[in-house]
Computed example of a mutant assay.
Amino acid sequence: MSIGRDLTKRRFWAKFSTQTLASIGLFAIFTGITDALFPNFLPPIGPYFLAGIVTVAAIYGLIRAWPRPVEQSYSSPNTEIHIVEGDLFEQDGNIVIGMTNTFDTEIPHIIDERGVQAQLLTRVYRSDRKKLDNALETALESQAFEEKFTVEDRKPGKQVAYPIGTVATIEPSVRKLYFCVAYTKMNSRNEARGTIDGVWRSLNNVWDEARTRGNGDPISIAVVGGGQARISQYFPAQDSIRFIALSYMFSSRREKVSSRLNIVVEKRVADNLDMLELQAFLKSLRPS
C-alpha cells in the first residue's frame, strides 16, 4: 500500500494529533510532580526540556499513527482479513470469481475482457474456452437451473440461467480452487445487473462452499460491485470492502471458513481508498 497516500488522510493526522497531545499531557504530569518535589531543578533547563518533550511526543505520535499493512487477526474465530493491493491471480490459496448467472465465458462480445471473469479464461485456462466451459458444466451438473432462454429471446452465448448465488467450483490446478459464483443476472441482451441483496447471498454461498471444500486454505476475492454488476454508483469500493469483510466474519462466527481472507484491490482503485479507515473497520469486527 502507498504510505504517501495514507499520510494525506484526515484519519492519520487526527490519530497523530491525539497521540502526540496525549504524550505531552503525560509529560506535563511528570513535569508538575518534578517541579513540586524539586523546585530548583527545572528552571535552568526549562527551554531545552520543553523542546525535548515536544520532540519525543511528536515521534511517539508519528510511530502510533504511521500507516501499516491493512490487516487484522481474530481469535474468535481464528482467522485473518488482509486488504491487499495487487493481482488477484497471484495470491496464494483459493480464489473467488464473480460471474453472471449464465456463466458465459465468451470475450469480448459477451464478457468484458478486462474483468476477473475474462482473466480466468485468458490467464488460468490459456484462452481455452472449451476447457473452461467443460469444467463449469461439470461443476453445475448437480445444480438446478432457474430458466432457459428461448429462440425468441435471441440471446447470444449460453442459454441456461442459474439462481443468483449458485457456486461452480473448478480446480484447474492441484490444491487451488476457483469458486465461480453467479452474483449478477444476465438478460437476453447480455446485460448483467446486480443487487446488494444478490451480492450478499452470493458471498454467503461462497463461504459455505469454501468451508466445505477449501480445506481451510486462504481465500482471495476482488472488490465486487463494479464492472458488470453495475452497482458501483451506490456501492463504491470502500463500502464493497466493508461489505465483504462483514459477510465473511458473520459466516466465520457460525463456523470457521478459512485461515485468511485476502480482499484484493487494484492499484487504480486503491489510490482512492482510505486505508486507515478500513483498518479501523476491520478492528471493529473483533468480538466485544
Rank of each mutant, 00 (worst) to 15 (best):
G4R: 06
D6W: 00
K9T: 13
R10D: 05
A14F: 08
K15T: 09
K15F: 01
F16E: 07
S17A: 14
T18A: 11
Q19R: 14
T20P: 12
G25M: 04
F27V: 08
T34L: 13
D35V: 08
N40L: 13
G46R: 14
G46H: 11
G52P: 12
I53Q: 14
I53L: 06
A57N: 07
A58T: 15
Y60M: 04
L62V: 10
W66C: 09
P69A: 00
V70N: 06
V70R: 02
E71P: 00
Y74W: 06
S75C: 00
S76I: 13
I81D: 08
I81K: 10
E85Q: 15
L88E: 10
E90I: 05
G98Q: 11
T100A: 14
T102C: 15
T102W: 00
E106R: 12
I107M: 06
P108W: 02
E113S: 10
R114S: 13
G115S: 12
Q117S: 15
L121H: 03
T122Y: 01
V124K: 07
K131N: 04
A135G: 02
A139M: 00
A139S: 04
L140I: 03
Q143C: 08
A144E: 12
E146G: 10
T150S: 14
T150F: 03
R154K: 12
G157L: 01
G157S: 07
G165I: 06
A168N: 05
I170C: 02
V174Y: 11
K176I: 04
L177Y: 09
V181L: 05
K185I: 14
N187V: 06
G194E: 06
V199E: 11
S202L: 02
V206L: 04
W207F: 14
D208R: 14
D217K: 01
S220H: 12
V223L: 08
V223D: 07
V224R: 00
G226Y: 02
A229S: 15
Q233D: 15
Q233H: 15
P236H: 03
A237K: 13
S240V: 14
R242Y: 06
L246Q: 15
S247N: 04
Y248F: 15
Y248A: 08
M249Y: 04
S252P: 05
R253F: 08
E255K: 11
R260P: 05
N262V: 00
N262Q: 07
E266V: 04
E266D: 10
K267A: 15
V269A: 07
D274A: 04
M275T: 01
E277W: 02
L278M: 06
A280T: 10
L285K: 12
L285A: 12
L285D: 13
S288E: 11
